[in-house]
Amino acid sequence: MSVVIDKVFALSTKIIALLVLLIVAWIFTVLLQHSMESINAFGFDFLTETKWAPNLEKFGALPAITGSVISTFLAMLLAVPIAIGVAIFLSEIAHHRLKAPVGVSIELLAAIPSVVYGMWGLFYFVPIIRDLFGGLGIGMLTAGIVLAIMILPFMAAVTRDAMDTTPDILKESAYALGATKWDVVKDIIVPYAKAGIIGSLILALGRAIGETMAVTFVMGNVHKISTDLTAPATSIPVTLANEFTEADTDLYFSSLFELSLILLVISFTIISIAKFYFLRRKRSL
């Protein structure tokens, strides 16, 4: 009897584990299937066309793709130095009594829903940008900054974790030789934890590019590529969030599905690079 139960238990865990793979494959298949109409209609022009005009049944993804790339780039530009600063602060500068509370509060802030960051951006940050640069205050620049703030806790926490993998004995040896804190950071921690640090930053990039709610409030959803960073713009997630429930034709829907597929492929690629190239998990067993 217990042999049977044993077999059933083993088999059901295996089937459920396989289900995870199945779901991922299913997601790609379904998105591709629903994108077919748009793929057939526009082909590769979808990626290079700048016009997104639902009323004319004309759809081009370039403004959304550019918007995703630029807003994420801006966010990384702002967040990476600060996140590294926070990580250095936490691992080398902060007094040991300060380390835990500050570290934990950063981790807790990473848990705050991104929609809250978006709301804050809309009510408190947009007016500041409007006063500083004129215009609506809604656009690429605002989105980049809010995205940077939203991704900062996650980025700082994983970067600190990567830095903390450096064995204390290495750091202590360097200090014993008269190294300054900066010497330790640049000559001990960075060489030792380089892969981990870069991987953490890329992982945060992968998250930022798919982040929806922090930017939807402050982006404006205007399908136009502009050299003016303070002008309203759009990105893939913003377009999806704003237009999915409004789409009224099959081609419109299909184009939105193709956008989802593009987003999934981009972030899957970025996260895979981070995971496989930089963050190979070491299994102890």
């Binding site: 995870v20 997601i27 798919g210 969030a241 999915f244 939105l256 989802s260 972030s267 996260i271 995971k275």
Partner: peptide
Amino acid sequence: ISDIMMSAPSIVIGAF
């Protein structure tokens, strides 16, 4: 694969 899915864009799951 599951690790990658952990960071995948949630809005895409919505579309799926």
